[in-house]
Simulated assay, not measured.
Amino acid sequence: MSERDPAAARFAVIQIVRLLGVAFVVTGILVANGNHALPAWLGHILIAVGLADTFIVPKVLARKWRTPK
């Protein structure tokens, strides 16, 4: 049985986090515009969380998983 490369798994996790962040932003925009039967404030929260998932969380994960010097 071959061992899996931990870098490939970490890369996949970072990409999934980014993709979910974009999905949160799109869903938040739809909710904030009134296209769903949810309150607009929930849409704004989804947009904020999605932006953080797209731009901040991947950098934090990459810094955490960086190879030590």
Rank of each mutant, 00 (worst) to 15 (best):
F55C: 01
L30G: 11
P39K: 02
G50M: 03
K64T: 04
V31L: 08
A9I: 14
L42R: 08
I47G: 01
R18C: 11
V26P: 03
D53Y: 04
A37F: 09
K64A: 12
H44S: 05
R10E: 11
G34P: 09
K69N: 03
V22Y: 07
R10M: 12
V26K: 09
P6V: 07
L19Y: 08
L19T: 09
E3N: 11
I45N: 10
I47T: 08
P68Q: 04
M1L: 13
P58C: 03
A40L: 06
V31N: 06
I47K: 06
G28T: 06
N35T: 09
P6E: 10
T27M: 13
G34K: 06
F55M: 05
V31Y: 05
P58E: 02
A23P: 04
A48M: 09
M1E: 14
A32S: 15
R66H: 12
I29E: 09
I45S: 13
W41F: 13
P39V: 09
P58H: 00
N35L: 15
I14K: 15
A9H: 04
L46G: 05
G21L: 02
A52P: 01
T67Y: 04
K69T: 02
R4M: 11
V25K: 08
I56E: 02
F55V: 04
G34A: 07
R18T: 06
L38Q: 06
P68F: 05
T27G: 14
A40S: 11
T27L: 15
V57S: 02
K69W: 03
R10P: 00
L46K: 01
R4T: 10
V60M: 10
L51W: 02
V57P: 01
T54I: 02
L38V: 09
V17H: 08
V26Y: 04
S2Y: 10
G28D: 07
V26D: 04
S2Q: 11
D5Y: 05
A8D: 13
I14W: 06
F11Q: 13
I29G: 10
V26S: 08
I45V: 13
L38A: 12
V26L: 15
A32T: 14
V49P: 02
I14V: 15
A48F: 07
A40F: 06
R4C: 05
G43L: 03
V49Y: 07
